[in-house]
Design a protein around this nucleic acid. Structure first.
Lengths: 158, 158
DNA sequence: TTCCTGCTGAACATATTGCCCAGCCGAATC
DNA sequence: GATTCGGCTGGGCAATATGTTCAGCAGGAA
């Protein structure tokens, strides 16, 4: 469990220049190619690295508006609501949170007007009692993991 | 602007099997290698594809607890608060939202007890008036983009 | 000591990349 | 109708990376 400094450096390198190959990584890190390959395999079967999917920007796709909606769910309707929200493409993620029957979801839309349509589609479902939406204006810290990786590598190895 | 069906198929393929090369993609998609290369280049300079960084799972890193915190910021302290939160590794992302002086951030922690430490560090800053935290219990829809990509490809291509 | 795990450095055949080209097609322009 | 243009095709080429295997070596654990 956990990652050591070499794993940390590997992840940082991979995050900064994702398209470089195993050989180039081994050169940058100053270790043998086999080592990098073994570490990568281990990190992936560990589940530390989930994948290398492309990070797609919804804005460039024509969905520049992001919002977070807090949903209050009717008792016992949780599973239905989850299934419903999973069918809405504009729902990018969904979490159930503390405070019985509450969910939080991230939405995107083509415009503020379009957001209304999305919200209607999201909440237009029987199990949802109430919804409150916060529209994102700025994103000062985009989703990031590197600082945490570095801390984890320090903690584990230090 | 926008993406056509081939772009969409390319993104889906890339999301499903991220480590395959350009040549293999061209075989799967039934187009010439040069076409795939050109599309990929365009998608990246477009900003549609932001990168191919590894998706790291905080849980596997030893941070299994996720929470969302809504922060209320004192007037005029926004920039300071942003700078403060950017220095906290456990803050994975930060948004400013409608409802003047409000921010929403995603946190991770090593345990529920550790979450208290993280929250203390987050809110232990002058510009933050009030904070309310929702701990994530389940994540029925993990962050996804493919359904939106498919919709965008359909819409754009008619 | 002996076992075991992880890293090294090397080798090999095979596959992929980056780059070039000429040709073809359809759409827009003149 | 003729021309120009952008995008796709299919090919070739040298350079490079990959997957795989191997023996050797160091350090920790039994």
């Amino acid at each position: 469990m956990g990652i050591d400094r070499l794993d940390g450096r590997l992840l940082v390198l991979l995050a900064e220049e994702p398209r470089i190959g195993v050989l180039e990584m081994s050169r940058r890190l100053g270790v043998a190619r086999g080592t990098v390959q073994a570490r990568l395999d281990r990190l992936q079967s560990n589940g530390v690295i989930r994948g290398f999917g492309p990070q797609v920007d919804p804005t460039a796709l024509g969905y520049p508006v992001t919002a977070f909606a807090t949903l209050q769910i009717r008792q016992g309707q949780g599973a239905d609501v989850r299934a419903h929200l999973a069918t809405v493409p504009e729902v990018l993620e969904l979490h159930t949170t503390t405070g019985g029957g509450d969910m939080l979801c991230r939405l995107v839309a083509r415009s503020n007007a379009d957001l209304q349509r999305v919200i209607d589609r999201v909440v237009g479902f029987d199990g949802i009692v109430r919804a409150s939406t916060a529209i994102v204006m700025e994103n000062p810290v985009p989703l990031r993991i590197i600082p945490l990786v570095e801390q984890a590598a320090r903690d584990d190895d230090g």
